[in-house]
Structures are given as structure tokens and as C-alpha cells.
């Protein structure tokens, strides 16, 4: 097969791509780039990615988008960011709002406002790995398909891991169930005990009103292979309502053990975390002046 592009053309093309990337980076606020550079990086290989395909340089292009949502759209207010310890840490938060903007905002708050900027790794739904472009973007941005084995490896690399133990049940919850935590999975606790990781409970107030869902059409979700198919009230707009986010980071919690305990013991620990987050949610709700 004859080359479709000659060597010269393909060189020009690559030059063009690099030029676009450089000029995009020049447009970005240097303070923001510095924050990304200050964040610790682990295990970056010869080709600029970590073993799972995460490229911190890509965060520089995503950070301005995240900052727009953080500062202008959701007007986030974070408290307790100084409580996040150095080294490996697990952020456990409530999940809500139909679209995972809550994950993006927790990541953004730690990247933009924490005393020590961190790049947070999150877990994504399994079916997103089947989507073209989205799967690659998530992969490069450090989001991985939820699996305890990968989580363990990342924690051993001293990364910050964000987990929503409610899972799809949480993000797809209906408007009537807002701020009621769904049942928590136990996997995160075993992982934390196994790797001796401190747990930081996070309560996110605001996101639960961003896309009020009236009903969940389960058969349609099953047909499309989605985790849920919520009927959202203002579903004409692809964006959520511009609610105000309040992020509350709690004191790090440490549990003793090695992850091989009985389910009853683990369930006790999990409930302790769940109650803490539920309590933080109640306090946050009382303090909040208005939804918007």
C-alpha cells in the first residue's frame, strides 16, 4: 500500500498539531498550569503516561473547563480542604445529579484550592469503556473503570482516589430521595484497610438539585445498556441547573485491620463513614442560604 500521506506531509501535520497544542497552552492562565505542575506525579513512563494510560499533561487542557464550572457555573465553596493528608488517600463522597459533575468539582476543588494540589483519580461506569472517544478521554484524564485491583495499585502508588460507594444508585436517585444516602458498597473499606489508607468523608451539598429526576425508566435503561434512564424535569437542556455547590471535607478517618475481616466488622466501619457523611450533609443543608 502506497502511503496516503508522504513523509513531508505527515511531518507538517504533526507540526500543525503540536503548534495548536502549544498555542492552546499559551492561552491558559499560567497560574493554573503551575498548579497542575505542582501536583505530585507517579510512575510516568517513557511515553508520558502512567501504566493505566493517564497523562497529567492532558489535565492542563481540561483544567480551564473545570475552573469555568467551578468558579462561574456552580460557584463552588469548599471547606476543610486543609484536612486532606499527603500521600495515599481515599475520598468518599455522596453521588448525585444524574451527570457526574460532582466528581469533576471535587477533583477541581483539590486541584485549584487545596494547599497541596493533587490530581484525583476517579472511577467510571463500566459501559463508558465501550464508548468511542469518551473511553479514551476518561482513560487519559486518569479515570478508570471501577475495579478493586486497579484501585489497590493506584493506592500503592500513593495516589488520591475518589470513590462513590453509592454507585449508579446514587447518581440516578430521584428528586424525592435527595440527600438520602443509598446503601454503601463494602469494597472501598476492604481496599482502605488492605492498603492502610486514610478515608476523607466528603459531603457535597447542591448537586442533588441540579437535575431533578421524576422517574427512572428501567426497561429503557436496560435496553440501551445504561445504568439508569432518568426522566429529568428540565430535560430540554443538556446542562444541569446552575445550582450552588458547597463541598465539605471532613476529618480523615483511619480504621485498623487488614481487609480480611468478617462482613459484620466491615459493615460497621462502612456505616460509621456513611453516618459521618449523612451528618455532614444535614449540617451543610441547614447552613445553606439557598439552592442557587
Amino acid at each position: 500500500m502506497a502511503p496516503i500521506f508522504t513523509a513531508n506531509e505527515s511531518q507538517n501535520m504533526r507540526f500543525l498539531i503540536r503548534h495548536i497544542q502549544e498555542s492552546l497552552k499559551n492561552k491558559i492562565d499560567p497560574a493554573l498550569l503551575r498548579r497542575v505542575d505542582e501536583a505530585p506525579r507517579h510512575n510516568i513512563g517513557e511515553f508520558g503516561t502512567d501504566p493505566f494510560g493517564y497523562d497529567p499533561e492532558l489535565i492542563k487542557l481540561i483544567a480551564p473547563v473545570a475552573r469555568f464550572f467551578y468558579d462561574n457555573y456552580f460557584r463552588c465553596e469548599a471547606s476543610g480542604l486543609d484536612r486532606i493528608p499527603q500521600g495515599r488517600v481515599m475520598l468518599i463522597a455522596n453521588h448525585s445529579g444524574q451527570l457526574p459533575f460532582d466528581a469533576m468539582m471535587i477533583g477541581a476543588s483539590i486541584l485549584l484550592e487545596a494547599p497541596q494540589p493533587r490530581l484525583v483519580r476517579g472511577m467510571v461506569e463500566r459501559w463508558s469503556a465501550e464508548l468511542p472517544f469518551v473511553s479514551t478521554l476518561f482513560n487519559r484524564a486518569g479515570q478508570f473503570v471501577g475495579s478493586p485491583a486497579i484501585g489497590k495499585r493506584l493506592l500503592e502508588m500513593d495516589e488520591a482516589l475518589m470513590v462513590f460507594p453509592e454507585g449508579a444508585k446514587g447518581i440516578a436517585k430521584l428528586y424525592s430521595e435527595r440527600y438520602k444516602l443509598q446503601s454503601f458498597g463494602h469494597g472501598f473499606m476492604r481496599l482502605a484497610l488492605e492498603t492502610q489508607t486514610p478515608i476523607v468523608p466528603v459531603a457535597l451539598v447542591g448537586a442533588e438539585e441540579q437535575a431533578p429526576a421524576i422517574a427512572d425508566i428501567k426497561p429503557l435503561a436496560k435496553l440501551l445498556g445504561f445504568p439508569a434512564f432518568p426522566l429529568v424535569a428540565p430535560h430540554i437542556l443538556p446542562l444541569p441547573l446552575p445550582v450552588k455547590y458547597y463541598l465539605h471535607f471532613g476529618e480523615p478517618m483511619k480504621f485498623g485491620g487488614d481487609g480480611t475481616e468478617d462482613d459484620d466488622v466491615i459493615a460497621g466501619y462502612v456505616n460509621e463513614v456513611k453516618d459521618t457523611i449523612q451528618h455532614m450533609l444535614h449540617v451543610g443543608l441547614e447552613q445553606r442560604p439557598s439552592i442557587f
Partner: peptide, 14 residues
């Protein structure tokens, strides 16, 4: 070794 390497659009495995 191919001169033009076909890939699947939107996927980029490690």
C-alpha cells in the same frame, strides 16, 4: 511495520 496503520476511531488502548 505498515506505512499507514489502521486504528479504531475513538479508542486508544494501552
Amino acid at each position: 511495520r505498515q506505512p499507514n496503520v489502521p486504528t479504531i476511531m475513538g479508542f486508544d488502548p494501552v
